[in-house]
């Protein structure tokens, strides 16, 4: 018997039901012997009477305590309220914000004009927009005629 087999069989049964093979392994393996003592210690100290029931009058005593205690909390009702009302309201608010932003952009022509004039008049900005940095050099070279032959 291997140590693994020993552990499987040991945890599933009481010592009085252990097979001869299991007991032989126990005698020959100190590690499993220690494991077995630990498992028995747990079982012994953890009671566990299968037929145990609370004393008579348990339910009456509980009922008396429930009568004076707080009522069930309404956490679930609040969660339901969040699902039903707050989440859709947040979605509507987000949509309205997007619509307002779009409307604002559409109804500000002077800003669009500013952008157009910037592209037309500012060489650096235009070169950045077109992705052609040589445009800056071309513009600067075109202005004075320093390179022309005298």
């Amino acid at each position: 018997m291997t140590c693994r087999e020993f552990k499987v069989e040991m945890h599933g049964s009481r010592k009085s039901d252990w097979s001869l093979e299991l007991l032989r392994h126990l005698e020959s393996c100190p590690a499993c012997a220690a494991e077995s003592r630990a498992a028995l210690l747990l079982r012994l100290g953890s009671g566990g009477d299968e037929g145990a029931v609370p004393r008579a009058g348990f339910e009456e005593r509980l009922r008396a305590r429930l009568a004076y205690g707080p009522a069930p909390s309404r956490g679930h009702a609040w969660n339901g309220g969040f699902e039903l009302l707050v989440r859709p309201a947040l979605a509507v608010a987000a949509t309205l914000t997007l619509l307002c932003a779009g409307f604002y952009v559409q109804t500000t022509p002077e800003r669009a004009g500013d952008l157009a004039s910037l592209v037309e008049n500012d060489t650096v900005f235009a070169s950045l927009l077109t992705g052609d940095p040589w445009e800056i050099l071309d513009a600067s070279q075109g202005a004075p005629a320093a390179t022309e032959e005298p």
């Binding site: 509980l62 429930l66 205690g69 707080p70 069930p72 909390s73 679930h76």
Partner: peptide, 10 residues
Amino acid sequence: FLKLYRTSAT
């Protein structure tokens, strides 16, 4: 069971 009663709504 007291706790169960109080949290039954959750």
